[in-house]
Amino acid sequence: MSGSGVPTWEEIARDHGRFLYTVAYRLTGNSHDAQDLVQDVLLKVRRGLETYRPGSLEGWLSRITTNTFLDEARRRGRRPVDLLPDDPDRVIPPSPGADVVLAAEALPDHVQDALRRLPEEYRAAVVLCDVVGRSYEEIGEILDVPVGTVRSRIHRGRALLRKALT
């Protein structure tokens, strides 16, 4: 690490390049946009636009990546659509034989495809939880939303994924 404690972008590329690209790819859903997103993130790091918070470097990178992604998605005009009616009594009906262990596993490509079709806000929450591995509290901090919102976005995201993959 450089003297000031802020990692240089070369260090990030060398040590965390795969991680960074993975997060960008899971968020954007395609390699062209993932490359652009990674470039934007490293540009921000290089320009010192993001205040480095000592601690988890990956947490910090996930924050920049996710927020850059969401900013861009909003700029493109796609509004997160709530595809599930806001019905508190609604319970996702179990698919037939749900009590039986399902033999077929979803292929990574299908899962990525289904992820890409999630509204960005849900996708970001699911990626931060299940790809990056942050806690609800950390996700709330990253997305600047309350923990309850994090929880509901993750749950709905997963519900949509499950629906899309069966």
Binding site: A98, V111, L161
Partner: peptide, 21 residues
């Protein structure tokens, strides 16, 4: 039943591999 469904989606995303740039 809902738990099983949601757990499945959670496991699928958690088992996605790292993506090579």
């Amino acid at each position: 039943g809902e738990l099983v469904a949601v757990d499945q989606a959670r496991r699928w995303v958690r088992s996605l591999p790292l993506v090579e740039p």
